[in-house]
């Protein structure tokens, strides 16, 4: 098992063709260690979301090399790619992406359902994740009836339920007031510190970024300066 969970070398991503071509990533290189918390910082349109999508294997880079846990990701296709997505990553989105009329438990266990885990096992692990986020009493509620902070905790429970090694958080506090946002931040950093889950936060919030071990600042598709081991 390598220490470096992500190795990125000269990663480029171009959208469109010919005259309409838009280079979202113009050659970025960095590494991310296992168990680190990383902030990807940048203004909107800087390419930070594209970088996250490429890292999360949702989008293929146009050129460059991306290794996940020592495996060249271009070799991952079809079923293998889906299995890696399902077992390695957890996602926390700003817009939650919860199915409104399904129960909290159903929302949380969706990754397990996709993985083909049996119903009783799904329930057990779903409840465990909810308990961890102190939401087990809401398991049977409809997702639509929750407050913003509760929704984001459900999303974190969903990200946790498949025991991922990496959690991607895309503006995790963007839709929350500062008090609730702080609670959600604490939960995420606790998971990083205690469970050793690599945390990759995409944000434009400097305060949130400052809590991470390292910041990757991105502007116009290029890494500006890599802050290494900055004492918080």
């Amino acid at each position: 098992m390598t220490q470096q969970i992500f190795t990125v070398h000269d990663l480029r991503k171009t959208y469109g063709h010919g005259q309409n071509a838009f280079e979202a990533l113009k050659g970025v290189s960095f590494t991310i260690d296992r168990g680190e918390s990383i902030a990807i910082l940048g203004k909107s349109g800087s390419g930070k979301s594209t970088l996250m999508h490429v890292l999360a294997l949702l989008d293929a880079p146009t050129s460059g090399k991306l290794s996940l846990d020592g495996v060249d990701t271009t070799s991952l296709r079809g079923k293998n790619l889906n299995a890696v997505r399902n077992k390695t990553f957890g996602f926390v989105f700003q817009q939650f992406f919860l199915t409104p009329n399904a129960t909290v438990l159903e929302n949380v266990t969706l990754p397990l359902k996709i993985a083909g885990v049996s119903a009783s096992e799904r329930r057990r692990r779903g409840m465990e994740a909810l308990r961890q986020l102190e939401l087990d009493d809401k398991a049977k509620n409809k997702a639509v009836n929750l407050s913003g902070g509760q929704k984001q905790r459900v999303v974190i429970a969903r990200a946790l339920v498949n025991n991922p090694s990496i959690i991607f958080a895309d503006e995790p506090t963007g839709n929350l007031d500062s008090a609730t946002g702080a609670v959600v931040e604490d939960i995420l950093f606790d998971l990083n510190a205690q469970n050793g889950i690599t945390l990759i936060v995409v944000t434009h919030d400097e305060e949130l970024a400052a809590r991470c071990d390292r910041q990757l600042r991105i502007r116009d598709g290029l890494l500006v300066d890599e802050t290494l081991e900055v004492a918080a």
Binding site: R85, N86, F97
Partner: peptide
């Protein structure tokens, strides 16, 4: 659309 995107991000294959 978003739900489909989410399921695919979570590793649900196109066939499924």
């Amino acid at each position: 659309t978003r739900e489909i995107g989410l399921m695919k991000a979570m590793g649900m294959g196109s066939g499924k």
